[in-house]
Design a protein around this nucleic acid. Sequence first.
DNA 1: GTCTATAGTTCGATAGAC
DNA 2: GTCTATCGAACTATAGAC
Lengths: 209, 209
Amino acid sequence: MDPRLPDGTSTGTESRILLESLRLFAHHGYPATSVRAIAAAVGVKAPSLYEHFPTKEHILARIVHIGHQALLASFERTIAGCGPDPVSQVRELVRTDVLVHVTYPLLAIVANDELHHLSPARAADVLALRERAEQIALDAGRRGAEQGVFDGTELVATTAAIASMGVRAPYWFIPTPAYGPAELADAYAELAIRMLRPSSPHRDGRGGG
Amino acid sequence: MDPRLPDGTSTGTESRILLESLRLFAHHGYPATSVRAIAAAVGVKAPSLYEHFPTKEHILARIVHIGHQALLASFERTIAGCGPDPVSQVRELVRTDVLVHVTYPLLAIVANDELHHLSPARAADVLALRERAEQIALDAGRRGAEQGVFDGTELVATTAAIASMGVRAPYWFIPTPAYGPAELADAYAELAIRMLRPSSPHRDGRGGG
DNA sequence: GTCTATAGTTCGATAGAC
DNA sequence: GTCTATCGAACTATAGAC
């Protein structure tokens, strides 16, 4: 898998360091990736890296921050770009969530799995970004519940379940020409709506719980 | 969080080594956990560990194997203990999946996150267990689709989404007296059925996709 | 089955030349 | 901004006494 970062994050050698670090962190994990291995992948010697980042942890911190910032920014653009209907909002938020995760799979994996290797202060900065994104999603769910288009019970568990779907996607999804990120995003958005919509006891057959 | 392993896996010092390793691997990851740290947690010196396990990797291999074996065995018991109705089967499989994951949260986290630190041969043994469990779940979904009680389209994505819900549960779920593992298992089982059941285009409002 | 002592390697990071 | 050389610490694992 080829490492990828959202555009405009950095340039030149610094960008190559981030990309190779992303690839190595995703494959071996942060503690198992040596500074020497990163340098070799970039094509320089280890001390040269310290001209661009003061420590190895700063490289991870940058990557993890980019990952969480990308998701939050995408959520904010999404919610700003769709109307007040909670069903549309959830559909578009789930689509965005899936697209971000499978467009930058290694970034999503590292941002989530290696976050806890950051110092508590740096991790807290990142978790604040994550909570803002979670709030956007939860708010849409709550508005839908208030309007009666969503089942108000189990909203926390359901929101967590929907988020889990997107978080796990980079671990298994391999796009093909016939079934790419857009198809998965559409499928997951539909699943999310089914999960949130009140069961209809008046339907033929059983009505669900 | 207190580390926990399914009963009957080992005894005495070996068991304490596994439990403390589980706790440390979950908190810091396998590569960042030193043999000295495990020994200190157990209350012995590092060389003593080598009387019980030939290498550090063997400790991880045992833990990862226990985790996957526990899920597979639970799936086999579950499918053997419920009737031929695919809806009941999926409901019980999801309930089992959630209960196993949140009853042994650290075990589930380490078994999934640290698997790739095993040698290819040892990882392959574990992945074989995982695939047998996945087959059990996929078979139930396929039978439901054949009988028309489940939506046959998007079965792969839907199965992956349902599995994602259970895999992620240990990372966020904190049981309370009012809402414990059984409640989450019931809620997720209901979500899974909603995801799998064909949408009813004749319902009032939109019919979905 | 525990210990002390240590071999042999690799680690993150720095000094200083160019 | 890259290099060579290296420091001091930490690592997994072993040897051998008890």
